[in-house]
């Protein structure tokens, strides 16, 4: 089993609902966030194109943040979710340096924090907060090894990309293009 998310860049309107939902669900301190919106504007006026991406931790299959953690606080759990155990984390910042996506931040309480794919909700059979709240239904989540999961079906007939594949981390966020 491997959890993954597909983000439909053609449907996303950049409303930031997922950002707020996450902050509320996970009690993210004010001024911080575990997911965010990137607007990538390319081209020369008047022919410009906008790509909207809801980004978060990629829960990389080959996660450098897990490898470089000196205490084992950063670790991978079932379904390939990368988690941080708060009271094992010494706040050295090595994992923040190692993440090509800048997906981690230093929590004001000292430990490092980031997206958990709402593991506490998955355990109860629910979806992640961001997926549930998205008004355009552009986030698809599930087990990518199950061909009938929401994420697998979303990827089936669409072209997609992952971000910075050359960093070699095997990211698990798929952006539908």
């Amino acid at each position: 089993m491997r959890y993954a998310m597909a983000i439909d860049t053609k449907k996303c309107v950049g409303c930031s609902d997922c950002v707020v939902a996450c902050q509320t669900e996970n009690n993210v301190p004010h001024g911080y966030c575990r997911d965010w919106i990137v607007e990538n504007v390319s081209g020369a006026y008047p022919i410009v194109e906008i790509e909207l991406r809801s980004e978060r931790c990629n829960h990389c299959e080959n996660a450098p943040c897990v490898r470089c953690c000196p205490t084992g606080a950063s670790h991978t759990v079932e379904g390939g979710i990368v988690m941080v155990t708060h009271d094992e984390c010494i706040g050295c910042g090595a994992c923040i340096q190692s993440c090509p996506y800048d997906a981690r931040y230093s929590h004001p309480d000292g430990y490092v924090d980031k997206c958990t794919f709402c593991q506490h909700r998955l355990e109860k059979g629910q979806n992640t907060a961001c997926v549930d709240v998205c008004p355009t239904k552009c986030l698809h989540f599930g087990d990518i090894e199950d061909p009938y999961s929401d994420v697998s079906l979303a990827l089936k007939n669409r072209s997609w990309k992952v971000l910075a594949p050359e960093a070699g981390t095997k990211p698990q966020l798929y952006f539908l293009t």
Binding site: G72, I90, G110
Partner: peptide
């Protein structure tokens, strides 16, 4: 440099060869 200093001793409860730190 550590932001969670009080857990400093955690460095010395494991050896993780993949981590230069």
């Amino acid at each position: 440099d550590l932001k969670h200093e009080m857990y400093f001793w955690r460095l010395y409860t494991t050896v993780r060869m993949g981590s230069p730190m």
